[in-house]
């Protein structure tokens, strides 16, 4: 099949950007979209051009590196699918596909389709962990956890931190990402110890990074490649209110 790719090209954050159209000829319907981009890049390199910069790593939908807005939808219009797992058979032969980078102030553009997602790392650093003494690994079944809590925690823990929720939200809000981490950890006994401090610190880091607020449009859950649902956001709102009422502090106790 044959596809036209309209790709956002921008040399650096400060350089002006524009769309360029590239032809992906003789691509197979079984190829992924990123493989089509690989093909275009091979042609560009062969002709002495500058290849299109885009993020990818595992190419099996589990690492969260790929980050392309495809025809206006992060990761494309297939539900529960990352861009690397989006195959060309889902496009019409001869179609023109528009590719844009994630657009959000906390995700500054590095080059072409690559953005800097360190803002997520700063949120995790603020509280997305469980403090434990190092030593021998504890027995897996030493702490009994109800099956429903395990399942709900896992539903949130599947977040791969790709940032599609931010990219899709009209407010560039990171609520689904932060709420996934807060829900995951607050549902498990190991994470409950620090639950008040965690939610206050992570929300503060999220606000400081400049993400927008949640207006409950549901765009985030519609594009989440891991199908995380916005009930995790309700849980985080509950956790945050609880922490405020309990007089918790976002600062680390020394």
């Amino acid at each position: 099949m044959h596809l036209s790719l309209r790709v956002w090209r921008q040399k650096s954050a400060s350089a002006p950007g524009r769309f360029e159209t590239y032809e992906a000829r003789h691509v197979s319907p079984d190829m992924s979209l990123l493989e089509a981009l690989d093909g275009v890049n091979e042609d560009l390199i062969a002709s002495g051009g500058d290849p299109i910069a885009f993020d990818s790593d595992c190419r099996e939908g589990i690492c969260g590196a790929c980050s392309v807005v495809i025809d206006g939808i992060p990761h494309g219009s297939r539900h529960g699918t990352t861009a690397c797992q989006l195959h060309l058979r889902h496009f019409r032969d001869g179609a023109t596909i528009t590719l844009e980078p994630w657009r959000a102030r906390p995700f500054p553009l590095i080059k072409d389709l690559v953005v800097d997602r360190h803002a997520f790392d700063r949120i995790i650093e603020a509280g997305g962990y469980v403090s434990v003494k190092t030593g021998g690994a504890p027995d897996g079944n030493a702490i009994p956890i109800p099956k429903t809590n395990v399942d709900r925690a896992m539903d949130a823990a599947v977040c791969i931190g790709c940032g599609a929720c931010v990219a899709a939200c009209k407010n560039a809000s990171a609520m689904l990402f932060v709420a996934s981490k807060v829900s995951h950890l607050s549902l498990l006994p190991q994470g409950r110890v620090e639950r008040e401090r965690r939610v206050l610190a992570m929300v503060r880091a999220m606000d400081d990074a400049g993400f927008g607020g949640c207006t409950v449009t549901g765009s985030c859950e519609a594009v989440c490649p891991k199908n995380i649902r916005i009930d995790v956001i309700a849980r985080m709102n509950r956790e945050y209110g609880r922490a405020l009422l309990k007089g918790g502090s976002p600062e680390l106790a020394l």
């Binding site: 769309f19 807005v69 025809d71 206006g72 939808i73 219009s77 528009t98 844009e100 657009r103 959000a104 102030r105 906390p106 899709a168 009209k170 407010n171 560039a172 809000s173 400049g210 993400f211 927008g212 449009t217 549901g218 765009s219 859950e221 519609a222 594009v223």
Partner: peptide, 15 residues
């Protein structure tokens, strides 16, 4: 302010 540069195509899925 959180999205100073808009998408050329914006679909807001699910909203």
């Amino acid at each position: 302010a959180a999205r100073p540069i808009l998408y050329e195509r914006s679909r807001l899925p699910g909203a």
